[in-house]
Amino acid sequence: MTIGDLKTGDSFIVKGVELSRETGKRLADMGFTKGVEGKVVRKALFGDPFQVCILGYHVSIRRAEAAGIQIERMVTPS
């Protein structure tokens, strides 16, 4: 499962990044590393890009990048 599969409001735990070397490295440097928790805050019009909260800050990524970030969805009590 990837961030691209998530709905607005879903929380996740990062498992790894499967993207090109440069993009993968940039995302890892921005905090998308194994075990880190995050949340999809919202999506822009037409569902792209995504606004994701990670390590307590907000970052915008495109659907293409979101689809390369392997995650595990967290079941949050609503």
Partner: peptide, 11 residues
Amino acid sequence: GETTPFVMELP
């Protein structure tokens, strides 16, 4: 070339 990523902080 491949499209480049859009990884941008929303401060």
